[in-house]
């Protein structure tokens, strides 16, 4: 169990350590803090978006120990000691990941709000399945809603990225 202090209202505040994009961060949070808020408010990683906040739109998608999850439905305290990859951790230094490059090449985004989650879902798919079928791509991103693109260029970008891994 994480260590905690009790604030003047009697609420426990826990010291939680998460590894985000390769670095450990220790933050003092309440148990009701959601992962999405830890990332955005405490770590200033605002690439992870807040959209529907109910697990339907996918714009807060991050990898938790490699698996894409909705950060709006995960308690930050449940992530103590675990590894998180956000959109900010997809690129390697100044080099964009192939998925990012292909999203740009195919214009697989417009307003960009779903894009971080979309890219995280796509990258997680390719990590597990480097040569997905079109159906598998669509299935992997079916939890990421995009109102702008009709998914047409997104699907093309992910398939193209798979061919160029």
């Amino acid at each position: 169990m994480s260590s905690f202090v009790v604030d003047k209202d009697g609420i426990k505040r826990y010291a939680v350590t998460v590894n985000v994009n390769g670095s450990d961060y220790t933050k003092v949070i309440k148990a009701n803090t959601l992962l999405v808020n830890l990332l955005r408010d405490d770590l200033d990683l605002t690439g992870t978006k807040r959209g529907c906040e109910l697990g339907d739109c996918g714009c807060c998608t991050v990898m938790l120990d490699g698996n894409p999850v909705n950060a709006c439905l995960v308690l930050a305290i449940d992530c103590d000691g675990r590894e998180i990859t956000t959109i900010e951790g997809i690129q390697d230094g100044e080099d964009l990941d192939i998925v990012q490059e292909k999203f740009i090449e195919h214009a697989g985004f417009q307003c960009g709000f779903c894009t971080p989650g979309m890219i995280v879902s796509s990258r997680a798919l390719l990590n597990e399945n480097p040569s997905p079928t079109e159906y598998e791509v669509r299935e992997a991103i079916a939890g990421n809603l995009c109102r702008c693109t009709g998914y047409v260029n997104i699907v093309a970008a992910v398939l193209d990225a798979a061919e160029n891994l």
Binding site: G55, G58, N67, A142, G143
Partner: peptide, 9 residues
């Protein structure tokens, strides 16, 4: 069930 992210949790 639901979508991939939800199936992961």
């Amino acid at each position: 069930m639901a979508n991939n992210q939800v199936r992961n949790r």
